[in-house]
Design a protein around this nucleic acid. Sequence first.
DNA 1: TTTTGTTATTGCAATATTACGATAAATAAA
DNA 2: TTTATTTATCGTAATATTGCAATAACAAAA
Lengths: 110, 110
Amino acid sequence: MGASKADAFSVEQQDLASLSKALAHPARIAIIQYLMNVDSCICGDIVNELPLAQPTVSQHLKELKLAGIVKGNIEGNSICYCIDTDKIQALLGFIQSLVASKQANPNPCC
Amino acid sequence: MGASKADAFSVEQQDLASLSKALAHPARIAIIQYLMNVDSCICGDIVNELPLAQPTVSQHLKELKLAGIVKGNIEGNSICYCIDTDKIQALLGFIQSLVASKQANPNPCC
DNA sequence: TTTTGTTATTGCAATATTACGATAAATAAA
DNA sequence: TTTATTTATCGTAATATTGCAATAACAAAA
């Protein structure tokens, strides 16, 4: 045995975990930061920005797309990627409430 | 080949990815939510709350502790766990700036 | 000390992720 | 059509994560 008891948890918990997993690699953080910097959608220059081969970058982009953090549009024979903030709002809300709950109720022992 | 080109990225990118990875499992989300709900530190009732065996929960707690999202204090012969918000602020800031950058600069193509 | 209760660690099997060469798919340009 | 150019997919090797039984470690109670 040893994998995937994820179904034993709520959909919300699984969704938050999936969103976090999409951010859980430095390459994917780097892609997001790049898209934030150029603040207009840029295509496969992402490949040139990262110290990774093209198939690897494509795979990371696929994961970000699947998680709903990034969107892609066909533009001529290249593809224009940009940030999508719809899904990530849930994770933002979770972390905000985490920080807020701690400030409202500082624990007695820690 | 096939693993760990993480060193090729900045420390900031690695830190954000590590924090995200700590949240990237429904069991760890559930642990955090439980600690938020009881808003005072609770020990190993976490094990009773989760559909996982005690060693598995202990391992998840270890990861959360290592990431700095959870703190543990010895209390008699049990251990009192509670949320720590110091480290997670970086991730909160990142996601906030991500959402903000998009609102400030809606991309032309997506 | 012995026993009990609580948490951590070890060892290992099942599975998932990461990375990339090779190659496919698809559009643009010649 | 042929040739570039650009991105996605396949196949596979290396490594990491997940889960738990067994067991260790350690403090409290008897």
